[in-house]
Design a protein around this nucleic acid. Structure first.
Lengths: 234, 234
DNA sequence: CTGCATCGAAGTGCATGCACTTATTGGGCC
DNA sequence: GGCCCAATAAGTGCATGCACTTCGATGCAG
């Protein structure tokens, strides 16, 4: 059949970029669970393109750590060991703590106010027990924290790490009472930052992540596929 | 001409993986300086393959942050602003500090001995002024530190960051007296780790990176290309 | 001589097709 | 019946070729 023709006129970036965006999103949201096979012909049909751009997209996803490619044996959504997940939370604790410490030292008055306002607004969601809305707020809260450290690269590292653990921490707020505790932990962080107490903010952020880590710890094994060799990666 | 034939028999992984390794290495070593054009036909000829695997390799390099792709306008080795470099060093200081702190708490007796031995051996290189050998030792030293934190993900993050700044910190030990100072800074880190003094190790590692940062700071502008829009990325 | 449109070459983006590898299934043998 | 192996199907890896975009050169008007 005829080759591409006038697809380019409708397209913003390249087809590959768009596919990477969509697939990464699907993985982070859990639509494509860890271990899921990423079949080239299927994806080619889904996106209405040939296998060539699909292959490029899969290569990039695996370079990003969201997928794993086994030469000649296909590509799957990245799996993880519970040991590796523990390590990732540990690193996230360090990164969030560093962000919080720097934010306490560097945030402008406006940034502090924005963080405080957002935090206060979320109190309502706790009362209402609005899980989904609180989850959305939670993302915003942490994003403000990352921006507040005024170090874009550090913010990128912690965002990336947060994304990578995302597929393994679904349903975290469903645990009863976790909502309220999360808010209290945020409160400790906000208070320290507003006061400019760097070390207190560091410790509060670290503690917050460690609690989240514990709440997510038992989730991995459900998604572990049966390949034993993945135990050796960390 | 005839297609591929029996290339696969000689090959370990895939052609693409090999190209990514080689190109990443060239970039980190400075053989391909920041801003250098990565021309698909040229690379295809260099590696003796068609453009398809070259394109995949470039996509992966850019997903790793080592290259930048402009749609329809080619691919270049990643450039960086001096602001961004400062941020990267800042993040590296945090990461190295965290590694050193955890290493002080977690390293086994054997690991401590290995670190100490390596460090003591390097004293010779300082006396001889052996810049290249010291640089090689320096990499080993930091690798041991990363492993010593017993958190593979954290080690990956700091290794990756170190790789990314590598193209911009060439000739760092050439500065007179830097060699000796570097050794002294390492000594402070090693001493703290051997004593298990986590906070001291944290501060020593942080200080070490900050000094390195200052020594490299003026290097970027030489490699800045002329595109003004890259100022807005951080 | 300068500014702008046009043409051409070079280079990028993707479709298609062939070679090779891996997974699977159905028969022959013990 | 269980085991092995060949034949086949499915899927991955890369080469090739066409369509589209960008960039530079050339020619013409002002």
């Amino acid at each position: 059949m005829m080759q591409q023709q006038r697809r380019a006129l409708l397209r913003a970036g390249t087809t590959v970029d768009e596919m990477v965006r969509v697939l990464a999103d699907d993985i982070l949201k859990g639509l494509l669970p860890p271990g899921e096979k990423l079949d080239e012909p299927k994806l080619a049909e889904r996106f209405g393109v040939s296998r060539t751009p699909v292959r490029e997209a899969l290569g990039q996803l695996s370079a990003m750590g969201l997928a794993e490619r086994r030469p000649n044996r296909g590509c799957v959504v990245a799996t993880i060991t519970d040991h590796r997940l523990t390590e990732m939370f540990e690193a996230m604790a360090e990164l969030e703590a560093a962000c919080a410490r720097l934010a306490a030292q560097r945030m402008s008055a406006g940034e502090r106010r924005a963080l405080s306002d957002l935090h206060q607004q979320s109190a309502d969601l706790v009362h209402k027990g609005a899980l989904d809305e609180y989850a959305a707020f939670n993302m915003q809260f942490h994003s403000l924290l990352y921006e507040g450290c005024h170090s874009g690269y550090l913010a990128d590292l912690v965002s990336t790490t947060r994304s990578r653990v995302a597929p393994f921490r679904r349903a975290q707020f469903n645990v009863l009472g976790r909502l309220r505790k999360s808010w209290d932990e945020h409160d400790a962080i906000v208070t320290a930052i507003l006061r400019g107490e760097a070390e207190t903010a560091d410790r509060a952020a670290r503690a917050h992540v460690i609690v989240v880590s514990a709440a997510s710890a038992s989730f991995v094994s459900d998604h572990r596929s049966s390949t034993p060799e993945e135990m050796s990666d960390a």
